[in-house]
Design a protein around this nucleic acid. Sequence first.
DNA 1: ACATGAAATGATGTGCACAACTATTGCAAA
DNA 2: TTTGCAATAGTTGTGCACATCATTTCATGT
Lengths: 241, 241
Amino acid sequence: MTIVEPAGAARKAAPDRVTASARERSDRIYMTLRDRICLLEYPPGTRLSEEEIAEEFAVSRTPVRRVLTRLESEGMVEIMHGVGTIVTDADLEQLAQVYHLRRELAVLAGRLSPIPRTEADLERVRALIARCDEISAQPDHAEFARLNMAFFAEISAMTGNVPLREISERLYFQTSRIVLKLLPVLNLAEEFAAFRDEMAEILAAMQINDLESVGHLRRAHISMSFTRMQRYVQTHQAETT
Amino acid sequence: MTIVEPAGAARKAAPDRVTASARERSDRIYMTLRDRICLLEYPPGTRLSEEEIAEEFAVSRTPVRRVLTRLESEGMVEIMHGVGTIVTDADLEQLAQVYHLRRELAVLAGRLSPIPRTEADLERVRALIARCDEISAQPDHAEFARLNMAFFAEISAMTGNVPLREISERLYFQTSRIVLKLLPVLNLAEEFAAFRDEMAEILAAMQINDLESVGHLRRAHISMSFTRMQRYVQTHQAETT
DNA sequence: ACATGAAATGATGTGCACAACTATTGCAAA
DNA sequence: TTTGCAATAGTTGTGCACATCATTTCATGT
């Protein structure tokens, strides 16, 4: 346990080789699994086999275990000795807590040193709205999930406060799949319309660089989204009872 | 990748055996190292040797690596291949971002379903204030750190919103050691006095169960703490220039 | 037929040997 | 003396065999 001098900015910055480093491989496996969980390719309750994943990525169980441990610390899976690694689910109570928090964090993101939008940023959001209009004729779960995630990435890029951005992303990745799973086919069109409106409203605020208003608009839409979800769950529970 | 039925509440709840399970051992090593980092026993820049830690806890490098990976994902250390695992430091800019965020999260904690205090809770806080008065005659870095952490635990226990509590704890553990390191001996007495005032004021709000006011008091004190820190850093930089 | 428990099965956890990587050190050449 | 480079020491990363744990299965006694 010796003290070392701070390395400073003398970091080597030449990752242009072909063979990926250990960290890059690990990050890649991590993001791949995370996206699969978020996009419901691995729905809640799925058991992830360390050996299968190791085989798919052509590595041994050791680096896979590192990734799964990371996913567990972020609440995406639960590792149980002798049982398996299970994609976690969430009940309405947990979901409510995360939503109440995300609601307020959206406002904070608009207040704590937000990053002004460039024309290129706005153009990407317009493209997302256009894409939403294209596919609204034949709604699709997976495509909705992808669009939603892409729009979230645009919003996230506005958050100048680094720890706040990381926290918001964590909470989003943790709950987006639960919402997706709860969306019945009946309400998908309604959700598409609501999502389209949200993007249009927020784009209007972004165009005049009123980033605090972006936060409040987001707060409103997160709130309404959860209200609709509660309504569905209660209806669904009434049916099964 | 098969779907398994949710296990429900059929979890076995008999951890009264002598031999600690794998998870318990892992958590114990984690908390031990985390506290050492927070209390400056491992100051920023310290290189943690996997082998030494493995030897100390009588395990192999494998479970130690799991703990270090977790500490890295929480921003406490940085693992570098072929170099070592280094306790991270933070500059004033990073610290400012975390403080601005913690300031607002303190207010949120008072608004999002806070947990009312019992007489036993209040008594523990009174004991902390008494202990603070006892040792204020001969201020000590380590004791200040311990008291501060104990008080934070009391505040944290008031946060009913689980994800918010976990986030707040993360941010606290991530930055408390930086603050501690920046505290020069000259200002220690001043910090002791300010900390004592903060606890007394918050206790008053707790006694009448005005938890929203607790949040605002915390916000004010976090803000003032950072302002004093900035003042010190600027003075110190002026000296060395 | 049913309850019971021991064995088998398949999952994650651990230990160890070795590979990959970085920083240092020493030596040789300009 | 300085510069470049190669050998070296010491660290984290990986692969594999085995230990540990939880579940399932099936045989056995009541």
